[in-house]
């Protein structure tokens, strides 16, 4: 079947089976391999992308449900050459080890900060609990989200003044 997808601001027409997941199409048809396969069950969060601004487990979303919606993947998160504050914070605090969970973590965190710009620690834990980091970098990830939140605040202030 033919589907039209709007990914990172670019329109793509794909011809795939209707049971294909958004993750399959992103990775195999569009070559956007930032979102990862971790479990295929929506349990690990490695495949997290934004659909109309909300975090979605792309392994569990059939392609038809994603068609026509605004999809953002890790590849589209940075504006031009500057990293998104969450990416920058992950990099600065080295909030990862093997890095396989990182794209999903970053996307979940970006979605959280969009909804709650200054989350409390408990809100970060609750929101991010569906993302698994098997290397156990959780504490650094929490710190990175807090760091990104405070740097976002600084940016906003700078822009306002």
């Amino acid at each position: 079947m033919a589907f039209t997808l709007l990914v990172n601001g670019v329109e793509h027409k794909v011809e795939v089976a209707s049971e294909a997941s958004l993750l399959n199409v992103l990775r195999d048809d569009l070559g956007l391999t930032g979102a990862k396969y971790g479990c295929g069950e929506g349990q690990c969060g490695a495949c997290t992308v934004l659909v109309d601004g909300s975090p979605v487990r792309s392994c569990r979303m059939q392609i038809g449900a994603a068609a026509g919606k605004k999809i953002t993947t890790i590849e589209g998160l940075a504006a031009d050459s500057s990293l998104h504050p969450v990416q920058q914070a992950f990099l600065e605090l080295e909030a990862f080890q093997c890095g396989y969970c990182t794209p999903g973590m970053v996307m979940s965190a970006a979605a959280l900060l969009r909804r709650i710009p200054q989350p409390r620690r408990e809100q970060i834990i609750t929101h991010m609990n569906g993302n698994v980091c098997r290397c156990g970098a959780y504490l650094r990830i929490i710190e990175a989200v807090q760091h990104a939140a405070s740097s976002g605040k600084r940016t906003t202030h700078a822009a306002a003044s």
């Binding site: 890790i74 590849e75 990293l83 990416q87 990099l91 990862f96 794209p103 970053v106």
Partner: peptide, 12 residues
């Protein structure tokens, strides 16, 4: 810092 760290946060 990890020498290729940027590649991990950008999905590259």
């Amino acid at each position: 810092s990890k020498i290729n760290g940027r590649d991990f946060v950008t999905g590259a």
